[in-house]
């Protein structure tokens, strides 16, 4: 047996990983640090410790309205993307439609098309057809970009499920609807759940589509933050951002509990 890795390289590897994690996490740590600062100005390392900026966020109409809109859209999108994407994945998994492979690629294609191109198309189409954007535009747009995640997680779960379970239900006399409701949907439940959480996260954090499909009375939380950053950021932006980071961490923990994050890590 040869020595697996020379010691020098092993130490270098640990140092390298530590530095990379520092690079990846530094901006998040900084944002959290700024949010608890006492200072009127954005400063890192923070001076003092205070939750005053959280209080100012929670009493700011603009932030609360933006948060309510983001939450509303994210919930609507989670529902629509999970139902539509889950149904499509169940059918795609059976591979009994002509061009199933092409169709699978089609369902995943919003993933590889840069959002800015799609956002422009949506803006222009809606302006031409309806004279402007609306909640409907945001809802449909977000659903389209979240759909591939649900399709992918559901397909991943189905590919490991027992294909004979549905056959067994059929021989025992279950009809189509019964098989779908009592056998197939429970089989893909972990995939649907993970997809739903991904959809929520992506919609809640999405900024590009929401910036293009913006209307004065339709400002989502990321758009509100972007506006603040362009104009005059104060530590209240950091407080909102920290809340968003907290929600993301929560979602990751939930996805990991439901399904194991590893299974969806490789893109």
């Amino acid at each position: 047996m040869v020595r697996a890795v020379p010691n020098g390289i092993r130490i270098a590897a640990y140092a390298f990983v530590a530095l990379t994690m520092l690079l990846l996490l530094a901006p998040l740590v900084v944002v959290i640090g700024v949010s608890v600062s006492e200072s009127q100005f954005i400063a890192f390392p923070p001076n003092g410790l205070s939750l005053a900026w959280y209080r100012s966020v929670l009493s700011s109409d603009a932030y609360l309205r933006a948060a309510a809109l983001s939450l509303q859209i994210a919930l609507m999108v989670t529902a629509s993307a999970t139902v539509i994407g889950g149904a499509a994945a169940i059918a795609l998994h059976r591979r009994n439609l002509p061009g199933s492979a092409v169709m699978a690629t089609f369902f995943l294609s919003p993933l590889v098309l840069p959002t800015i191109i799609y956002a422009i198309g949506m803006l222009m189409l809606w302006s031409t057809l309806f004279g402007g954007v609306s909640m409907m535009t945001l809802w449909l747009g977000h659903t389209v970009i979240c759909l591939p995640y649900v399709v992918r997680t559901t397909l991943a779960v189905l590919s490991e499920s027992d294909p004979f379970l549905e056959e067994a239900a059929r021989t025992m006399g279950a009809n189509r609807i019964q098989r779908l409701v009592h056998v197939v949907v429970p089989q893909c439940l972990p995939g649907l759940a993970a997809g739903a959480f991904f959809a929520f996260n992506i919609s809640f954090d999405e900024a590009v589509l929401s910036l293009f499909l913006r209307r004065a009375d339709m400002t989502t939380l990321p758009v509100q933050i972007y506006g603040q950053l362009e104009f005059s950021p104060d530590p209240s932006v950091a407080a909102v951002s920290t809340i968003m980071i907290g929600i993301t961490i929560l979602l990751i923990v939930v996805i990991d509990r439901v399904l194991g994050i590893k299974r969806f890590a490789s893109t």
Binding site: V34, P233, S241, T248
Partner: peptide, 20 residues
């Protein structure tokens, strides 16, 4: 640790860099 920044909103991460 790799996925956490990936799933955090781009505006939030960019804000962190603006401070740094």
């Amino acid at each position: 640790l790799v996925i956490l920044p990936l799933m955090t909103s781009v505006v939030v991460r960019t804000f962190g860099w603006m401070v740094l």
